[in-house]
């Protein structure tokens, strides 16, 4: 306590400086606390649903099979290395947190040029992270080449067969994995690119058109004998079903990483505004760079949340 430097911006002695921090900084802390409560609730909901799923013997998604796309590695070399990309994303966010501390540190020395430099790096890091997340979401939604269409019976609940897009071929499989029929690549590519839940009649029509009569015939049999009514989903994920695990998994993924991404994006915007103020000389005139410290608190909080999201969504 003796080493504590009195913050000149804290409330004056007659106002009993209880916490030795300025009003703005205190309010930022309490805002972050409430935000931390929100994120905690979301992550606890994730935990509860995942544990429930485990108790029901319904397997949860395995992160190593979900997050397998890395730019360049996937597009150029066709490699699907699990978790590499998210490791890079985590590192980007940690580094942008570091550049933020360096900006704050430069602010203490009132070195306008250095503050501006480090703020700009922080903005760049945040932007890079948001772009990475866009890439990740894209591949999460589109899914893998082995994602399956599920054919549904009349009651709409029973799954009769799977229409699986395998590399280069489209296969109709039953639940034992036996291939009932295969279709041409053209059909496979076309179906892969379809929006989720096409009508089964539409699929039969496409099968004829794209030289996959075997699948068309089998689908027709499905309609006639099992009363197949619809095709639920392609590979990938939406809010109702996904190829990875229970629906709750994708819903939580969208909500939690989306909510975090929103925080990152607003952080980028706020950081950029502060950067503009720095180069304009606003804080030089004010005599201190406390504003940089305050947005710094927010930015580190975003990094902090990612540490938890990273652990629960990608590692465990």
């Amino acid at each position: 306590m003796s080493k504590l430097k009195v913050d000149p911006l804290a409330l004056g002695p007659d106002e009993r400086p209880l916490l030795n921090a300025s009003y703005g900084k205190l309010m930022m802390w309490f805002f972050l606390m409430s935000d931390a409560f929100t994120f905690s609730s979301l992550l606890i909901a994730y935990g509860a649903l995942r544990i429930r799923s485990g108790a029901q013997d319904v397997p949860w998604a395995n992160p190593e099979e979900v997050y397998t796309h890395t730019p360049v590695l996937y597009e150029v070399f066709h490699l699907e290395w699990p978790l590499v990309f998210v490791g890079i994303m985590t590192f980007i966010l940690i580094l942008s947190s570091v550049t933020m501390v360096l900006a704050v540190e430069a602010g203490h020395r009132r070195s306008q040029k250095e503050v501006a430099k480090w703020m700009l790096w922080t903005v760049a890091g945040g932007l890079a992270f948001v772009l990475c997340q866009a890439y990740e979401w894209y591949h999460f939604i589109v899914g893998h080449s082995d994602g399956a269409f599920r054919l549904l019976a009349e009651n709409g609940k029973e799954v009769v067969a799977l229409l699986v897009a395998e590399p280069g071929v489209m296969a109709l499989k039953n639940f034992d994995g036996e291939i009932l029929a295969t279709g041409s690549t053209a059909f496979s590519n076309y179906v892969n690119g379809l929006a989720e839940r096409p009508d089964v009649m539409e699929l039969i029509r496409i099968a004829k058109e794209y030289n996959a009569p075997e699948i068309g015939a089998l689908l027709q049999t499905g309609v006639d004998t099992y009363g197949v009514e619809g095709v639920l989903t392609s590979g990938g994920a939406n809010m109702l079903v996904n190829e990875y695990g229970p629906p709750a998994f994708a819903n939580l993924f969208f909500f939690v990483t989306g909510f975090h991404g929103t925080h990152v994006f607003s952080g980028v915007v706020i950081n950029f505004i502060i950067y503009l103020n720095v180069i304009k000389g606003t804080y030089e005139k004010r005599g201190h760079y406390e504003m940089v410290e305050k947005v710094g608190l927010y930015w580190h909080f975003v990094d902090l949340v990612w540490v938890f999201v990273f652990t629960f969504f990608y590692l465990i």
């Binding site: 921090a21 580190h300 902090l304």
Partner: peptide, 19 residues
């Protein structure tokens, strides 16, 4: 990791105990 981020980067470890 959370401890290091909050304590060092957010500087909470160097604030008053009350805070």
């Amino acid at each position: 990791k959370a401890y290091y981020i909050v304590s060092e980067f957010m500087h909470l470890g160097h604030e008053m105990r009350r805070l």
